[in-house]
Design a protein around this nucleic acid. Structure first.
Lengths: 125, 125
DNA sequence: ACCAGTACAGACTAATTAGTCAGGTACTCA
DNA sequence: TGAGTACCTGACTAATTAGTCTGTACTGGT
């Protein structure tokens, strides 16, 4: 997956959606950008405890390629890059809502732990 | 993931849901069982063109462990085993509906190919 | 007798994905 | 001059996931 674009062939819609959302941090990036609107690289990094810089850009680049994320570069020094969701990114995030609810119910059911929240103010869960 | 159960810790609900649904064939197994109610091992295999026997049982075992799939063994010769969705499997499949619609729209958008359907009668897409 | 079908198990390999770490640029501030 | 900041890149390694292939125990059909 790493280098080339994700373009099927697919068995069905879920298959196609999973293709762009699969990746350890992608759904989290989506959620983070959804909640904050716009984030710089370093902010995103701080918002996702445990992510490596390499995986973060790799995922961001893939999501940009897939039309989920918009990347705005400001030619300044020190460099400034802002990431935000595109229309398709927003709609994907919406489509994930019911799955998120199912997952939250599952966490309760099996009594799974949560990764300690880094920022209660965003209201994320 | 292979051997041990999927039990977090999770960042959020989507993370938890993705954990049980991640795997090349899992969403397809869910869909197949949802559409047919009950399937034997070999029927499932035929329904998922390209899957290897190894991956099929591995995924089925994990989904059973995660409480998504029910496995009914009939002590006959030749062996007969029937797989079906549990209550949780059904609800997960429901929760995936909107994601599937998003994916179907994406397939249209990017003009991706589909894996040639094996059985038009099930109405799957 | 031999092949096909049923539902797997297990060894081994290949491919993919993720993580670590060492730079690298291009400037600003002390 | 040297440190610090922001945003990466690329090499290398580790871990995970998927695929191939062989084998098993039993029976029904040709």
């Amino acid at each position: 997956m790493a280098a080339s674009a994700r373009r099927g062939p697919y068995f069905c819609g879920i298959d196609a959606a999973m293709d762009v959302v699969a990746g350890k941090w992608k759904s989290l990036i989506l959620w983070e950008l959804h909640n904050s609107g716009t984030r710089r690289f370093a902010e995103l990094r701080r918002g996702l405890p445990g992510v490596s810089e390499k995986m973060l850009i790799q995922h961001l680049r893939e999501m940009e390629e897939d039309g989920l994320v918009h990347r705005e570069v400001y030619r300044e020094v020190p460099p400034k890059v802002e990431y935000s969701l595109t229309e398709h990114g927003v709609s994907l995030n919406d489509a994930l809502t019911s799955l998120g609810e199912w997952g939250t119910a599952r966490i309760r059911r099996i009594g799974a732990e949560r990764v300690p929240a880094h920022d209660a103010a965003t209201g994320r869960q």
